[in-house]
């Protein structure tokens, strides 16, 4: 999944964030907005509604979780030691988008595009 961050109205993205292993088609309501530019206010609204498309089915965890994601756990950050963990798609997407809002939220023209 790629998140493009635009700080101005032109077509050039300020930054592209590429995240492996996130299935946006499993995340409400963002799966309806794939490929379109989302302005700051709408992004804030969508983030309040973020969630999985359905309850987890124990037989199909891959539909719900990004599996075996290497993470820095419990403060052990910045080192080579990572732990593999399953993280729900909607939580990963929300965390990244909240980070984008935090970093670029001061820009009046902030828009993002998920593809």
């Amino acid at each position: 999944m790629i998140i493009e961050v635009f700080e101005s109205a032109n077509d050039e993205a300020t930054i592209e964030i590429e995240i492996d292993n996130v299935d946006v088609s499993r995340v409400l309501p963002f799966r309806e907005n794939v490929g379109e530019r989302i302005a700051k206010e709408k992004l804030k609204t969508l983030l309040t509604e973020v969630g999985p498309i359905e309850a987890v089915n124990p037989d199909e965890p891959e539909n719900y979780y990004a599996q075996n994601v290497p993470v820095w756990q419990d403060g052990d950050i910045g080192t080579e030691k990572t732990t593999l963990m399953d993280i729900p798609h909607h939580i990963r997407l929300r965390v990244v988008l909240e980070g984008v809002l935090q970093k670029y939220g001061t820009s009046d023209n902030l828009q993002i595009r998920i593809s």
């Binding site: 964030i17 590429e18 995240i19 994601v69 290497p70 993470v71 820095w72 756990q73 419990d74 403060g75 950050i77 910045g78 990572t82 963990m85 993280i87 939580i91 990963r92 929300r94 965390v95 990244v96 909240e98 980070g99 970093k103």
Partner: peptide, 24 residues
């Protein structure tokens, strides 16, 4: 505040467990 964070610099997820949080 989320118990997870995405480190854009390192493109790595940071996760804190509830147990570790309370421990601290």
């Amino acid at each position: 505040i989320n118990s997870t964070r995405y480190s854009a610099e390192s493109q790595t997820d940071v996760v804190c467990s509830i147990h570790r949080f309370l421990w601290d």
